[in-house]
Protein backbone atom coordinates (compact mmCIF):
# COMPACT_ATOMS: atom_id res chain seq x y z
CA UNK A 1 0.00 0.00 0.00
CA UNK A 2 2.73 2.41 1.03
CA UNK A 3 4.57 1.52 -2.13
CA UNK A 4 1.54 2.35 -4.25
CA UNK A 5 1.29 5.80 -2.68
CA UNK A 6 4.99 6.35 -3.18
CA UNK A 7 4.67 5.41 -6.84
CA UNK A 8 1.79 7.81 -7.28
CA UNK A 9 3.85 10.58 -5.72
CA UNK A 10 6.64 9.91 -8.17
CA UNK A 11 4.07 10.06 -10.94
CA UNK A 12 2.84 13.40 -9.66
CA UNK A 13 6.40 14.76 -9.54
CA UNK A 14 6.99 13.68 -13.11
CA UNK A 15 3.71 15.23 -14.18
CA UNK A 16 4.59 18.51 -12.45
CA UNK A 17 8.00 18.47 -14.09
CA UNK A 18 6.61 17.79 -17.55
CA UNK A 19 3.96 20.43 -17.04
CA UNK A 20 6.64 22.96 -16.11
CA UNK A 21 8.68 22.06 -19.18
CA UNK A 22 5.66 22.36 -21.46
CA UNK A 23 4.96 25.78 -20.01
CA UNK A 24 8.51 27.01 -20.50
CA UNK A 25 8.62 25.53 -24.00
CA UNK A 26 5.43 27.27 -25.04
CA UNK A 27 6.48 30.60 -23.54
CA UNK A 28 9.90 30.38 -25.18
CA UNK A 29 8.66 29.55 -28.68
CA UNK A 30 5.91 32.10 -29.11
CA UNK A 31 5.81 35.77 -28.37
CA UNK A 32 2.09 36.42 -28.56
CA UNK A 33 0.67 35.74 -25.07
CA UNK A 34 -2.79 35.19 -26.52
CA UNK A 35 -1.46 32.42 -28.74
CA UNK A 36 0.50 30.88 -25.89
CA UNK A 37 -2.52 30.63 -23.65
CA UNK A 38 -4.67 29.17 -26.43
CA UNK A 39 -2.04 26.52 -27.03
CA UNK A 40 -1.78 25.53 -23.38
CA UNK A 41 -5.53 25.51 -22.99
CA UNK A 42 -6.01 23.32 -26.06
CA UNK A 43 -3.58 20.78 -24.60
CA UNK A 44 -5.52 20.81 -21.36
CA UNK A 45 -8.87 20.33 -23.08
CA UNK A 46 -7.63 17.30 -24.94
CA UNK A 47 -6.18 15.81 -21.75
CA UNK A 48 -9.43 16.51 -19.92
CA UNK A 49 -11.49 14.73 -22.55
CA UNK A 50 -9.37 11.61 -22.32
CA UNK A 51 -9.35 11.72 -18.55
CA UNK A 52 -13.12 12.06 -18.36
CA UNK A 53 -13.59 8.88 -20.38
CA UNK A 54 -10.94 7.06 -18.38
CA UNK A 55 -12.30 7.98 -14.94
CA UNK A 56 -15.91 7.32 -15.86
CA UNK A 57 -15.58 3.61 -16.52
CA UNK A 58 -17.06 2.58 -13.19
CA UNK A 59 -18.81 5.80 -12.26
CA UNK A 60 -22.60 6.06 -12.14
CA UNK A 61 -24.49 8.20 -14.62
CA UNK A 62 -24.27 11.89 -13.82
CA UNK A 63 -27.56 13.62 -13.24
CA UNK A 64 -26.75 17.32 -13.31
CA UNK A 65 -23.92 19.83 -13.34
CA UNK A 66 -23.39 19.60 -9.58
CA UNK A 67 -22.49 15.95 -10.10
CA UNK A 68 -19.90 16.98 -12.66
CA UNK A 69 -18.41 19.68 -10.43
CA UNK A 70 -18.24 17.15 -7.63
CA UNK A 71 -16.59 14.68 -9.99
CA UNK A 72 -13.91 17.25 -10.84
CA UNK A 73 -13.33 18.17 -7.19
CA UNK A 74 -13.15 14.64 -5.94
CA UNK A 75 -12.19 12.09 -8.59
CA UNK A 76 -10.15 14.18 -11.00
CA UNK A 77 -8.23 16.03 -8.32
CA UNK A 78 -7.39 12.87 -6.37
CA UNK A 79 -6.40 11.10 -9.56
CA UNK A 80 -4.05 13.87 -10.68
CA UNK A 81 -2.99 15.74 -7.57
CA UNK A 82 -3.56 13.08 -4.87
CA UNK A 83 -5.87 15.35 -2.88
CA UNK A 84 -9.35 16.78 -3.12
CA UNK A 85 -10.31 20.37 -3.79
CA UNK A 86 -10.35 22.13 -0.42
CA UNK A 87 -13.40 24.28 -0.85
CA UNK A 88 -16.21 24.61 -3.33
CA UNK A 89 -18.36 27.68 -3.58
CA UNK A 90 -21.15 28.64 -5.95
CA UNK A 91 -23.02 31.83 -6.66
CA UNK A 92 -26.11 29.86 -7.75
CA UNK A 93 -26.00 31.60 -11.13
CA UNK A 94 -24.01 28.97 -12.92
CA UNK A 95 -20.59 29.85 -11.55
CA UNK A 96 -18.56 27.54 -9.33
CA UNK A 97 -15.39 28.43 -7.48
CA UNK A 98 -13.00 25.55 -6.92
CA UNK A 99 -10.57 26.59 -4.22
CA UNK A 100 -7.33 24.74 -3.65
CA UNK A 101 -5.40 26.07 -0.65
CA UNK A 102 -2.11 24.63 -1.82
CA UNK A 103 -2.23 23.80 -5.50
CA UNK A 104 0.59 21.35 -6.05
CA UNK A 105 1.83 22.73 -9.38
CA UNK A 106 2.53 26.11 -7.79
CA UNK A 107 3.43 24.83 -4.34
CA UNK A 108 6.93 26.30 -4.63
CA UNK A 109 5.68 29.81 -5.40
CA UNK A 110 5.66 31.98 -2.31
CA UNK A 111 2.94 34.40 -1.35
CA UNK A 112 4.30 37.55 -2.97
CA UNK A 113 3.74 39.75 -5.98
CA UNK A 114 6.74 38.28 -7.76
CA UNK A 115 5.03 35.92 -10.22
CA UNK A 116 1.44 37.08 -10.06
CA UNK A 117 1.57 38.25 -13.66
CA UNK A 118 2.82 34.91 -15.02
CA UNK A 119 0.67 32.59 -12.94
CA UNK A 120 -2.57 32.79 -14.98
CA UNK A 121 -0.68 31.58 -18.05
CA UNK A 122 0.93 28.84 -16.00
CA UNK A 123 -2.47 27.62 -14.83
CA UNK A 124 -3.94 27.71 -18.33
CA UNK A 125 -3.36 23.98 -18.83
CA UNK A 126 -5.27 23.06 -15.70
CA UNK A 127 -8.12 25.37 -16.70
CA UNK A 128 -8.25 23.65 -20.07
CA UNK A 129 -8.30 20.30 -18.34
CA UNK A 130 -11.37 21.20 -16.30
CA UNK A 131 -12.97 22.68 -19.41
CA UNK A 132 -12.26 19.52 -21.40
CA UNK A 133 -14.00 17.42 -18.79
CA UNK A 134 -17.09 19.62 -19.01
CA UNK A 135 -16.99 19.50 -22.81
CA UNK A 136 -16.97 15.73 -22.70
CA UNK A 137 -20.01 15.78 -20.43
CA UNK A 138 -21.76 17.91 -23.05
CA UNK A 139 -21.66 21.19 -21.14
CA UNK A 140 -19.83 24.26 -22.33
CA UNK A 141 -18.04 26.10 -19.57
CA UNK A 142 -15.37 28.76 -19.34
CA UNK A 143 -12.74 28.21 -16.70
CA UNK A 144 -10.55 31.07 -15.49
CA UNK A 145 -7.86 31.06 -12.83
CA UNK A 146 -7.72 33.52 -9.98
CA UNK A 147 -4.57 33.76 -7.93
CA UNK A 148 -4.05 36.38 -5.29
CA UNK A 149 -2.11 34.52 -2.62
CA UNK A 150 -0.09 31.66 -4.10
CA UNK A 151 0.03 28.74 -3.63
CA UNK A 152 -3.68 29.14 -3.03
CA UNK A 153 -5.61 29.29 -6.25
CA UNK A 154 -9.19 29.53 -7.37
CA UNK A 155 -10.62 28.08 -10.55
CA UNK A 156 -13.77 29.82 -11.60
CA UNK A 157 -16.07 27.64 -13.69
CA UNK A 158 -18.73 29.59 -15.54
CA UNK A 159 -21.33 27.30 -17.05
CA UNK A 160 -23.02 28.46 -20.22
CA UNK A 161 -25.76 26.26 -21.51
CA UNK A 162 -27.79 24.44 -18.93
CA UNK A 163 -29.44 21.57 -20.68
Amino acid sequence: MAKAIQEREIGLDLFAFLHGEVYSFVTRTGTDPEQQSTKLRAMGIRAGQVLQERLNLEAPRTQDEVDIVRFVCRDVWTHLYLKQIDKLRTDNKGAYYLIDNEFCLIKQVSDSMQYLRDLPLFLEFTCGLIQGIFVQFGISAIVTPEVTHPPMCIFKVQIHNVK
Binding site: Q52, E53, N56, A59, R61, Q136, G138
Partner: peptide, 8 residues
Amino acid sequence: YGYVTNSK
Protein backbone atom coordinates in the same frame (compact mmCIF):
# COMPACT_ATOMS: atom_id res chain seq x y z
CA TYR B 1 -28.95 -3.91 -26.03
CA GLY B 2 -27.81 -0.36 -25.31
CA TYR B 3 -25.20 1.36 -23.18
CA VAL B 4 -24.58 5.08 -22.87
CA THR B 5 -21.42 6.48 -21.32
CA ASN B 6 -21.27 9.68 -19.33
CA SER B 7 -19.92 11.42 -22.41
CA LYS B 8 -23.08 10.37 -24.29
